[in-house]
Design a protein around this nucleic acid. Sequence first.
RNA 1: UCCGGUGUAGCUCAGCGGCAGAGCGGGUGGCUGUUAACCAUUAGGUCGUAGGUUCGAUCCCUACCGCCGGAGCCA
Length: 452
Amino acid sequence: MRTPIIEALSSQAAVDDIQVCGWVRTRRDAKAFSFLELNDGSCLRGIQVVVDAGTPGSEGLAEMTTGASVAVRGRLVPSQGKEQAWEVQAAEVQLLGAADETYPLQKKGHSLEFLREIAHLRPRSNLFGAVFRVRSRMAYAVHNFFQERGFMNVHTPMITASDCEGAGEMFRVTTLAPGAAKLDEDFFGKPAFLTVSGQLEAETLACALGKVYTFGPTFRAENSNTSRHAAEFWMIEPEQAFCDLAGNMDLAEAQLQHQVRDALKHCAEDLAFFAKYVDKGLLERLQFVAERPFQRVSYTEAVRLLEASGPAFEYPVAYGLNLQSEHERWLTEQHFQCPVIVYNYPKDIKPFYMRQNEDGLTVAAMDVLVPGIGEIIGGSQREERPDRLLAAMAQHGLSEAEYWWYADLRKYGTVPHAGYGMGFERLLMFITGVGNIRDVIPFARTPGHADF
RNA sequence: UCCGGUGUAGCUCAGCGGCAGAGCGGGUGGCUGUUAACCAUUAGGUCGUAGGUUCGAUCCCUACCGCCGGAGCCA
């Protein structure tokens, strides 16, 4: 029975008979024996295996080079070396699969750009092993957070016929041949797309189950070429009935803090690696976010602060204009130096479904901004008043016929409700310090790139 | 899509209008309870692609392509 290396390394006592399997990171030969360092992905560190000359299977040692896969049986014993507490004294080694001299991962560091070209092998590197372990833990923590608070996980459709929501360009889903004329003969009888958000559908479930959340892939066909955008990404979208904007902000803050605390507690070794090689200030920042309340500032106040601030911005600051990246970064990195929630945006720069405030000018929207990333969460209280919603839809040029089911929620037992969307990859960038979204998802889809 | 940068060995990079370089990695030999081991030795190149200027271009110019950073859009 194979013992994961993470368990072998944390053993409390020697073990007479243990089997470990993994990929060779490095081999160091002496005259009478060899050291093999094996990593199996269960944790950042590898385990040192001592193979004496003449050990059964050691005739394959020459092929146990970096990248080769190996199975070892032997004794787990205290190491004589300084760098590790335990090592395996091999009784039998077996070469499972060799890796010849073309194996691209070296013992030395590689650039992230090069590793992207070998996305099928980069999980075997220290950095990407750590990223994907943290990704797994953070997905688990998402479900933990919501399930413990009585939220139901709902599955909203990947394929949708409702376009828009103001969330950007969509990918078309079709079985028609290119250039086909008869669009009504398409699979769904009308144009269909990959979803850009499960929000509208999640609202219907919130207005029945009370508290729900989605966690799944989302698609945007925007020609965005930045380190923060991908064409396929994962989004977490909670939605609560009987909830207003303040409750929504409370939830967003609590969830973000939960994710950070969970990572600090359960991914300490991997985070320490990021702090050493990727982002020196990572642990301090995460600690700070875990402990301190977020700043909350209205859009109007934010504009006032930006106007009164010293630095000259490239883009103008004025009421009614969107906050630019540089403005968001100034608020969260320079002025408040912590996560900031900006709320109550002008209605003209926000989508139709957001609830109008009594001032007639703003809607109950909120964005959570974090240092280094900018916007990580966007949400709002939804417009629950039927007349207001229909008016907003008309203003945005949306057809009532298309969104009849969405309007029905307001027609039958409407309730105040609110929710938000959190970009999972942006969360991972924040938690790992990794600066490019292409490096926190195993196989990134960006304009012109759908390899692997 | 726009702005800026960049492209030289498997990787990371230096270089120069006149014979193509280093470190790492690979091969080989040696040494050592080693720790991204160490020492010696060796192989490895269409200098992104196509044009142009020049006696001569990896170097200068133009276009295209790739990649990186920033911006817009957003999560």
